[in-house]
Design a protein around this nucleic acid. Structure first.
Lengths: 343, 343
DNA sequence: CTGAAAGCGCTTACAG
DNA sequence: CTGAAAGCGCTTACAG
């Protein structure tokens, strides 16, 4: 590797010489640390500006912070996660922080690899989205690095913060909406994952669905079908459901991504949505708005979740040790896919 | 910030002591450098394993590599970029490298900020997707850090590698396909960007479109409408186009993302696709396959582009100084949205 | 093949 | 308020 010209690198030493102060003074200005007079600060700032000084991240990371936050996504294809990322980036806009994105893929091994890579790189903190880990492991991780978790319910955790929407309520809203529109045989299409103490958002949505169905006197119609995340698996599950006897009048999908596949299968089977079938998603991603989908969905404000998680994480990095658990109230956005149907 | 327990950190010094060798020897094993005997290597490996040694990235970055590659995306919402990311990640799977993702947003300022953040963090290399920069600036950047560019044509650049599909050919395939299916009045919906020496993929696609239209004797129908990337702007452009006199029989959209919006607008206007309108996209993203879209598109193998770019970049980091310019041949995937129509 | 030592650019007690 | 000095955990010539 070509060694980039070393002689002309501007370091805090260069800046210190130019400003006629000590290296420590420059470091303090850099970190906005206390104990520097206004004039000195100004002099140093001017020199930094003049010389085009840029801090060397690795050197800072040796002793202090790296000013880099790790974000772990379970899956890059779900468009909802891009909403979260927008929020995180927005929160970091005027700060020195940058994000390192890791894709945890489906497998647990890959997830561990990403975590290790982030710890090796001395992330100042980690935003962990949809972790598939039992609480003890999460606690262990949080002991090593400040952490905020999105989309995993552990409201009593002390070692880390959480940011969620109320998934139980979201699912309730879906069922109530569909019942109000005249649907009764309502099935749910959820994610096939080993459940971990009901912490996962899918589990919460399933519980909300079941409870709301009971409350509406539709216990007999309760049906939760699990499927893996691949398009092929989702389509197979949807096809089977739609071809079964007692086939549902409406399907509540745990995420928009899945609902779009259900719309596709219904289309292929020649079923009208709405009319032959009602469909509702979750996350209110940008695809819901397209007229060919017109998908009713739950808005849980991915941007807000991302923004909050970044804020909380920075607070923790700065020293907060008590846990915060932020919950957004979800909101149903009705579109054509769940229109009332005369029966 | 709580200082993580320092005493128990396993460093190369700890490993060296455990293995009974020098610190330099451990460093060499770590880097797979030459000049270490097999037995010594084994002894060190065993100690690293035993102690659970993890290299400290910041310390490595001080003198050597960070083993982190920066990836710059122009826009996180375009699903095509997730395909590229999959490829990049696949190429890095068995390596020590990790990716740092930066979103360059639309504005040039944001793009510069992301680049600075990556240079500050001593990325070993950068994969720059769809840069909006004139060649001199790209050269200047490549002088600072090894770089591979995706989706920007500069086949004579020496300072960096490029990875592309043949956008001119891709556009040609679209026009030929549509003409073959009986469409004649074919418009193109492109991206509103200040053109930079015809380097951008949109420019190449426009050129391919124009040429193919001429070659088909359809010069009179040539029409390229520019629009910004937001859903609102795309919809407005599509609406205007579809309501105009001499409205096109088919629209070629520069990327699937745009084509999905066109399908939406057509749907809203009560137009049938195909029938009243043919639509073709570009990138063959996962949404093309959904039956409600059934969108004909050009497959440029985002995964392959990502994979290649990572490979080339690592080669450059390892010392290659000659430029490589990799070009994928695009392939049209026909679906319902461009079916022949009797006229 | 192996190791002692300098040094990368910062931050952090500590002394003045 | 200000600065001299040690040290973070590696890599890199260099000497043996």
């Amino acid at each position: 590797m070509a060694p980039r010209q070393k002689s002309d690198r501007v370091t805090i030493k260069t800046v210190a010489e130019d400003a006629g102060v000590s290296v420590s003074a420059v470091s303090k200005v850099l970190r906005d640390a206390y104990g520097v007079s206004g004039p000195l600060r100004e002099r140093v700032r001017a020199s930094m500006e003049k010389l085009g000084y840029r801090p060397h991240a690795a050197a800072r990371g040796m002793r202090g912070q790296t000013y880099t936050l790790g974000v772990i996504l379970p899956d890059i294809h779900n468009p909802f996660f891009t909403d979260i990322m927008s929020g995180v980036n927005a929160a970091l806009e005027r700060t020195q922080y940058q994000t390192l994105l890791g894709i945890g893929q489906s497998s647990l091994g890959a997830q561990q690899e990403v975590i290790d890579a982030m710890i090796d790189r001395q992330m100042d903190g980690i935003i962990f989205i949809g972790p598939r880990m039992p609480p003890p492991e999460l606690d262990a991780l949080a002991a090593k690095v400040p952490m905020t978790i999105i989309a995993n319910h552990s409201p009593t955790a002390q070692a880390y913060d959480t940011v969620n929407n109320d998934d139980f309520l979201g699912a309730t809203l879906v069922v109530q909406h569909l019942v109000h529109a005249g649907y009764r045989n309502i099935a749910m299409l959820s994610l096939d994952l080993p459940p971990i103490e009901q912490l996962q958002v899918t589990t919460q949505r399933e519980l909300g669905y079941r409870q709301a169905m009971e409350d509406a006197g539709l216990r007999q119609y309760i049906k939760v079908v699990m499927s893996e995340q691949t398009p092929r698996a989702i389509q197979a599950a949807a096809r089977q459901l739609l071809r079964s006897r007692g086939r549902p009048e409406a399907i509540f999908c745990w995420t928009d991504f899945v609902a779009l596949e259900v719309l596709s299968v219904a289309h292929e089977l020649g079923m009208k949505v709405p009319g032959d079938l009602g469909v509702v998603g979750y996350d209110n991603t940008t695809y819901c708005d397209l007229a060919q989908n017109a998908l009713t969905s739950i808005d849980q404000s991915g941007q807000v979740l991302g923004l909050q998680s970044a804020r909380l994480l920075i607070e923790r990095i700065k020293g907060r040790t008590t846990a915060e658990h932020f919950v957004v109230t979800p909101r149903l956005v009705a579109r054509n896919s769940s229109q009332p149907v005369a029966r």
